[in-house]
Amino acid sequence: MVHTIRYKNSFPIEGGNFDEAGVVSLRVKSILKDMGFLGETQRRVAIVAYESELNIISYARSGHITLRISPQEIRIDAEDEGPGIDDIELAMKDGYSTATDRIREMGFGAGMGLSNIKRCSDTFEITSESNKGVHLRILIDAN
């Protein structure tokens, strides 16, 4: 099905820069708000955007989040350049994490991010290539 794209933009994210954590997800949330998406849709997109952003900051060298909004759905692509994920099935398990102690001390890296994203998505796909990066494709129905 072809959807009319009402909005499309890509936001760069720098790996390791925790000072900027949340900037992109706050931006994404405010764009949704401006376009009239409220309540549950906005809540789910905010969670997906935040977790995707934090994954890039915590594990990758760099990446970007692309937001596409059509009347029917919101699409989020989170792509990074980094070590990638060797065992995706394991990474999807609640509580599994490869985060460093420093990241864990901050309350990140609890191994909940990918499952949070999946739970908030209507369609969720993850692909990864070792030493190249990760690509998350998320669709959320616009209610």
């Binding site: 925790f18 000072d19 954590a21 949340g22 900037v23 997800s25 706050l26 905010a46 969670i47 935040y50 977790e51 934090l54 901050m106 309350g107 990140f108 609890a110 909940m112 991010g113 949070n116 739970r119």
Partner: peptide, 25 residues
């Protein structure tokens, strides 16, 4: 933070021992 992001709601007061700047976002 993933727990708080997933499960807290608008208008909540958030009780935590985390004090670094990421709690604000």
């Amino acid at each position: 933070l993933s727990d708080v992001i997933a499960n807290s709601s608008r208008g909540n007061v958030w009780i935590t021992r985390q004090s670094h700047s990421n709690i604000v976002a």
